[in-house]
Write a protein that binds this DNA or RNA. Structure first.
Lengths: 199, 199
DNA sequence: CAACAAACGGACCGGGCGGTCAACTTGCTA
DNA sequence: TAGCAAGTTGACCGCCCGGTCCGTTTGTTG
């Protein structure tokens, strides 16, 4: 355990400024927004970025960690909701709400991951699987979809809206509704391909 | 009209090699695969790339044009199919089949587009709208989805599979089926957000 | 308030990118 | 088959990126 003494006041403030600026910049310009731009947006020098985060990937990982962790907290709370179908829907809404798809792609793409990131990811998978299992048992979701399916479909609502310029901020709700209707048992047609492994 | 005299034999061959190599490279590595890699894969020098295409964007545009055009041809053929619901599904399958989502994102993102690209795009929108209208009138698709919705959802099946490493090549069929079930009238729940404008 | 470590900032570096160019090769045609 | 335009090539250019480094500033502590 690296017993780390508390940050100096200005350093702590800058760290938060950086995280916020980076999140904004990534949301606007995608993951290849430049470190220099992020620093400028936060009002600090570029060197400061690397004082707080070992590399750009490290900065991204810090953001992802925060957000997936927040999502996990929501998910865990929903695990004993009265209506499992509504709980799953709410979880997916929460995921879409904070443009989670970039986080997800980072979680998958990044070659080797920190232990932190790995653990938060498997925890998320577990939660999704549990939510889906409960919803399925409750008859709220068709019997042939798995947790792995939902993990993949999770960021689709947000993704499709990236194609419309100046999209209204909650257009994703429309596509989440359509996709969720496709997950319901009513009117389900058999699926032509087996699900991917759980991993 | 630039009345262009026919290409020399080796030049024509190299052009095809380049288009094929670029399509492969873009499919594997995404749109920021380097021009140098594309040239190497095609077995030509880097300068040759720029003799055939004014810029990297121009090369991308040429590929997109080809593929969207091919898709349009399929779409037009499907316009007078016996079963409009099946026709729409088949169109979406054709779109997913050739990893159309990168094309789509280029069509939308690229700031200013060639007249060619613009025309092929509006033609595609028209075709999708016609397919959807027919399917809706036939009762194969819920009444509250529009052509614009389908244009957006078109590449989602492919997109979601990009997250699974070593995905089986037609895993997208599974997610197309789920999404298409969400488009059917049976068991449709009202949508919480109006559709985006047609443009 | 003195003094020191912690934090900061921006010039700087190496590398890879898209794109250019001039010397060289090659397919076509008379 | 001779000659030339069309085509090819890879070294080269300028640019921007992630990351480093060290002289300077600043919060903290006794």
């Amino acid at each position: 355990m690296t017993s780390t003494r508390p940050l100096r006041a200005d350093a702590a403030r800058n760290r938060e400024l950086l995280l916020a600026a980076a999140a904004d910049e990534f949301a606007e310009r995608g993951l290849d927004a430049s470190v220099a731009d992020i620093a400028r947006r936060a009002g600090v020098g570029k060197g400061t970025v690397f004082r707080h985060f070992a590399s750009k990937d490290d900065l991204i990982a810090a953001i992802v960690l925060d957000r997936v962790d927040a999502l996990n907290t929501i998910g865990e709370r929903l695990l004993d909701a009265a209506d499992p179908g509504a709980a799953l829907l709410e979880f997916l809404a929460a995921a879409a709400h904070q443009r989670q798809q970039r986080d997800l792609s980072f979680l998958q793409e990044a070659g080797e991951l920190t232990a932190d990131v790995k653990s938060v990811r498997t925890r998320m998978f577990d939660i999704v699987h549990a939510l889906v299992d409960r919803a399925r048992e409750h008859g709220a979701v068709r019997t042939d979809v798995t947790g792995a399916d939902i993990v993949l479909l999770m960021c689709a609502p947000n993704y499709v809206t990236t194609y419309v310029p100046d999209a209204p901020p909650d257009l994703w709700r429309r596509y989440l509704a359509i996709i969720f209707d496709g997950l319901r048992p009513e009117g389900a047609h058999p699926l032509p391909h087996p699900p991917p492994p759980t991993r």
